[in-house]
Design a protein around this nucleic acid. Sequence first.
RNA 1: CUAUGCUUGGUUCAGAUGGUUAGAACGACUGCCUGAUAAGCAGUAGGUCGUGGGUUCGAUUCCCACAGCAUUUUCCA
Length: 937
Amino acid sequence: MTDYKDTLSLPKTDFPMKGNLARREPDMLQRWQEQDIYARIRQHRAGRKKYILHDGPPYANGDIHLGHAVNKILKDIIVKSHSLDGLDCPYVPGWDCHGLPIEHQVEKKIGKAGARVDARTFRDACREYARKQIARQNTDFQRLGVLGDWDNPYLTMNYRTEADIVRALGRMIEAGHLVRGFKPVYWCLDCASALAEAEVEYQDKQSPAIDVCFPVVDEDDLFGRAPGQCEDRGEGPVSVVIWTTTPWTLPGNQGVAFNPEFEYVVVQCESQRGRERLVLAEKLATSALHRYGMEDYRVLTSLKGTDLEGLQLQHPFYASHVPVILGDHVTLETGTGAVHTSPGHGVDDFNVGQKYGLPVSNPVADNGCFRDDTELFAGEHVFKANSHIIEVLIDRMRLLVETTVLHSYPHCWRHKSPVIFRATPQWFFSMDSRGLRAGALTAIGEVRWTPDWGSQRIYDMVNERTDWCISRQRTWGVPIAVFVDRQSGELHPDSTRLTELAAQKIEQSGIDGWFDLDPAELLGEEGGSYEKVTDILDVWFDSGVTHATVLEADGRLAFPADLYLEGSDQHRGWFQSSLLTSVGIRNQAPYRGVLTHGFTVDAKGMKMSKSLGNVIAPQKVMQTLGADILRLWVSATDYRNEMNVSDEILKRMADAYRRIRNTARYLLANLDRFDPDTDCVSAGDMLELDKWVLLETARLQEEIIRAYGEFQFHLIYQKLHHYCVVTLGGFYLDIIKDRMYTLQRRSLARRSAQTAMYHIAEAFVRWLAPVLSFTADEIWQHMPGQRPESVFLEEWYQEFPAVTIKDHWPRVIRVREEVSRELECLRTEGAIGSSLDAEVQLYCSGADRIALDYLGDELRFVFITSSADVYGETERPDDARQSELDGLWIKVTASAHAKCVRCWHRCEDTGVDPAHPELCGRCVLNVTGAGETRHFA
RNA sequence: CUAUGCUUGGUUCAGAUGGUUAGAACGACUGCCUGAUAAGCAGUAGGUCGUGGGUUCGAUUCCCACAGCAUUUUCCA
C-alpha cells in the first residue's frame, strides 16, 4: 500500500495541547512585567475617553482569600473588556492601612501603645506591618493575572494620603456635618478604655435582678388616661415596676420605657408593706406578682402602652421626676414590661433617649467609679455599689424583690472581666443637621446599581441609619485634627484653616506630625485655651474619602468614578462611607455605577469556614489548576448570587478550559504556514460554509461584546463554550477536515477555510483575553501574520469580510441531526463504523428540498458520508424511515464501494486510475492533477 | 429579631404580557474514530423548575406564607 500521507495537509502547531498553567503562568507573568505591559497599554490608549473603575482598598492584613480573588478578577475582566472597547482604563489598586486589626497584630508582637512602647514606636511598627502585608497581597493579586499599576498603588497610609484624609475631614467640617456628642460604648474597667465590638465576647455572668418601684407622681393623671370611668381606684401608693440586672445604672436613670402596643394593668395588691397599687404589663402581671409574694390582687383598670406616654414618675431614690417613654425594644420575655432607661448605659436606651431628648447622663468615671458629684454613691465602684443601691432601695420602700439571674453578658476578651456600657464624648457626622441623609438619598437615585436591587438596599440603610460615629480612642489612624475650646467643648472657629495647616504637617511627617504637634505652633497665644483632639478617625473614613484622596488627587484617575465594584457587604461599608462623604463634601455621588457580587460559598451553599473545612484558597488553585481556571470559574459563575465553588466545580471548569484551549489550538494548527497578507481569499470567492461560519462568528461577537458591556460574564462563558463545542467542534471544523486535509495546500477551497479560521482566531483570542488572559496571550504568540506585542493592546476584531449567503444552513443543520441519529442506528447494528462508511438518501419536498439541493453534490461533505442524495418525498421506498422533521424521510446504508486510502471516502471510482489503484478519482485529481473545486462545503 | 437577595436535572447557566413534550453545554453512560490523539465525533438516560397555599380555564413564570442558604442589622433591661 502506497503511503499517501505526505500528500495530505495535516494540522501542525507548536501551541501545546496541555496548558500546564500552574507551571507556565509565572513565566508569562514575568514577561508581562518585563515588557511593562500595563504601561504600554496606557501609552496605546493615551487621549482616549477614560473609563475609571476605582479599586476599593482591601484591608492590609492577612493573605488574600477567594473573595478577594473574585473581586479583583471581576474588576480585571471589566477593565480589560473596556480597554478592548477602545477606552483608556487605568487601574490603580489600593490598600486600607490603618485600624484596629493591625493594632491587634502589632500588640501581640510588641505590646500595647503607651504601655511597653511609646505611641510613636507603635505606629512605626504598624506601618511596617502593613507594608509587609501589602507586599504579600500584591504578589498574589498579580499572580491572578490582574493588570494594573502594581508598582504605584495608593495606600491610605502614604503621608500625602493621610494629609488628604485630614483635608477631606476639613471639607466635611466646612460643610457643617461634624458634631460632638455622647454615645455609650463598651468600656472595660480593667483596660480603663473603650472596646470595639470585635474586642467583646459573651460569657455567662451571675447578676442581681431587682424589681423596683417608680412611684407615679400624679395619680389622677394615670387614671385619667384609662379608657372609660374607673369607679374603683383602689388604695395605697401607686407605682410603675421595672426589672433590671444592673442596679448600678439606676443613678443614671432618665425614664421608663413601655411598649406602645402592649396592654398594661393597674392592680391592687397587698403585702407586709401594706396595700399598694402597681402598674405592670398585663401578660407579665401574674408572674411578677407571684415573684413579689402577692398572690391576691385585683385589676383596677388597664391601659395601652401608648396611653402612658409622658406620665411622670418619681425616681426611686433621687428627687427628680422621669417620664414614661415608648420603645419597640420593650419585650415580654422577662421582667415587668417596663424598662428602666439610662441613655448613658445602653444602646437601646441611648437611641430611644435621643428620640425623647433625654439627657445622656454618665455618672461613671473612667475608672468605673461614680463621680464625686454622684449623690449617695460618689466614689463607689459600680459593681460594688450594687449592694449599696439595693440597701437604699429597701430603705425607701422601692424594692419589691431581689433575686439573681445567670445570663450571657459581654466581657473584655483580654481580661475576661465583665464590661459596662458607658457614654463617652465622641465625634459624629450628623445625618440630618445639614441634610446629609436627604442629599445621599437623592444621590442614590442618580447611580446605576447592578444588580438593581442594590439601590433599594442602600436606600433603606441610609434612610434608617443613625449618625456616623467617626471617632476612635486608638493609636494607628488618621487624627481628627481639630482643636476644641477647653471651656465650651466647641470646635475652634477657624477649624477649616487649622485643618489645612495640620494637613501640611502630616504631609511632611505623617500622622505623627499631628500627635507630636505643640498646639502653640498653630494657635500661638490662644494655644492654652484649646485642647488638641487626639482621637483618630474610624478607618471607614479613610477608605470612604478615596474619591477625594485618590480620584481627585491622583492624575492617573478622575472624579467621579464610572464604577465601584465590591462584595454586597459593602452596601453598608465602602459604598455608603464613600457616598456620605462625597455628598457631604460636594453633594454628589462619587460613582456613576456600582456593581456588587455575592460571597463565595461551598457546593451546598454554605459559607466557607475553617470549622466546616470547606475553605478553598486561591493560592492553592493557582498552584494546581492555574489562575486561568480560577478566572474562568469567576466568569462562568453568576456573581449576583452566592458563588458556589468546590473541587468538583473547579474540575468542570478545567474540563471546559481544555475544550476552549484545544479549539484555539486546532485553529492555529490549521493556519500552519498561512500568511494572512497573501493567502486570504476575497469575500466573494469564499465557500458558502465558510461564509456561514463567519456570519455566525460576527453575530456571536456582537452578543459577547454586549454581554461584556452589561457585565453578564457568565453568559459569555456559556456562549463561548457552546461555540467551541457545537458551532465549531461538532459542525464546522468537523466538516472542513476533508477539505483541509485532502485538497491541495494552496487550493482556493482550502484557503477559503483558512481565511475563515484566521478571522475566527483573530476575534476569538480577543473574546478570551479579558477572562483567560494567560491563555489569550499565549494564543497571540502563535497567531499568523505581523501583529503588536500583546493582545491587551488590541480592540475588538472588526475585519470580518463582508459576505452574504443564501442562508439554508439552519435547515441543513436540522436535517444533519436527523441523519446522525440514523447513522447511529446503523453503527449500533455493526453495519458501519465511521460515518464515511455510509451512504444517505433523503426524501423530502418544499423548503427542505430546496435547502438540500442547494448544496448539490457537496451535501455529502456536510454529512461526512460517502454519498448523500436527495429525492422527492413521494419517491421514498418502503424502508426509508420517517424522521422527526415533518416530511423528511431518511434511508442510510453501508456503502459497498471500496475505501479510498487517502480520503477515506467510499466511492465507485476508487481504483479507476491504474497508477493509483487505492485512490478515488477526487484524490487522483488532488494528488496529480489540477485539484478539485468546491463551492459549498 | 431587621432588611435585602437567592432556591430550574449530579454541575454551570438559559427561559417565558402566565399557554402545546422546560432548553443548552458539562459530567455520566453506550458506541465510533485513530489524520486535533492524555484529543475528536455520535447517540442515550437524567428535571412534578425549594415546600405549601392563593389568583386563573391554565403557574415553574404573578401573589402570600413557610423552609433553607447568603449578606446585613439589632437585642439579651
